[in-house]
Design a protein around this nucleic acid. Structure first.
Lengths: 136, 136
DNA sequence: CGTTGATTACGAAGAACCTCGTACTCACTG
DNA sequence: CAGTGAGTACGAGGTTCTTCGTAATCAACG
């Protein structure tokens, strides 16, 4: 994918719906949006998004059904990277620390994250793994 | 603090410099910026930021020295929370996982993060209190 | 005093963003 | 065929963002 692209505020609102639902027609997206927006406004945003190749659409009956073309993981990674660079001076650790402080995690999530961290550490060393733990 | 505020693209570039250096005059900020920008453009952004109460300035010799008024931690938390909500559907875990995958961490960082995670897990069990103490 | 250089103040101008109104298309219905 | 309703296309218009040009200020110098 060429450019993960950074979304504008409203574009992100729309994409969010698409990611959550997988796809959507203008009406569906509009209904799912948390803020009141005119039908044509939503349509327009979707058209702009399509023009930027961030979504695609295919005919469905009389209407179009829109599908996201960028994965949320990629978009998220890009957005996260930006914040890490600009706000946390490139320190992923600081960002991670902040996020953990900001959003309470369940015990299970913490467990999974720790496993992930172990794997990341292993990758960093790229060798010398002798205490490979199990997995959930 | 009323509103952690979300910065525009350029505002973020400026704030980034201020956070990294602690403070800066127009010329200093301009020099530290990775992109070429006219002197008055930087000045203008700083004035806008000041107007929005995101930075303050005090006289220093002939010029003003600008200081950030919002902490990077707060700004980062806000920005991160936005991404988590809009892109990762509110799942901090997914965001964390992505960030870990995106940015390699040193073994030491992983160690510290795990400690942090343990503490987070403990908090989850008991109860939370508000964070972020006073700020400047 | 007049010039020079560094700095801030002001506001114009273009670009991007966002919201819609209005017109147009087309399948259905009676 | 005319009317209706669901949809899309187009483009105007307002707002915000961003970049600067130009003018004003003021200390220092000769």
């Amino acid at each position: 994918m060429a450019d993960p692209a950074s979304f504008t505020e409203r574009e992100l609102d729309i994409m969010s719906v698409l990611w959550e639902h997988g796809s959507g027609t203008v009406a569906e997206v509009r209904d799912a949006l948390p803020m009141p927006l005119g039908y044509t406004s939503v349509l327009k945003m979707l058209q702009i998004l399509a023009e930027k190749r961030l979504v695609r659409h295919e005919q469905e009956g009389r209407a179009y059904r829109y599908y996201p073309l960028v994965e949320q993981g990629a978009a998220g990674g890009h957005a996260l990277g930006r914040i890490v660079d600009k706000i946390f001076q490139g320190s992923a650790e600081l960002a991670l620390a902040r996020l953990v402080k900001e959003r309470p995690l369940s015990t299970e999530e913490v467990g999974r994250l720790k496993t992930l961290l172990d794997r990341a550490a292993a990758d960093a060393d790229s060798d010398a793994d002798s205490d490979t733990g199990g997995d959930a």
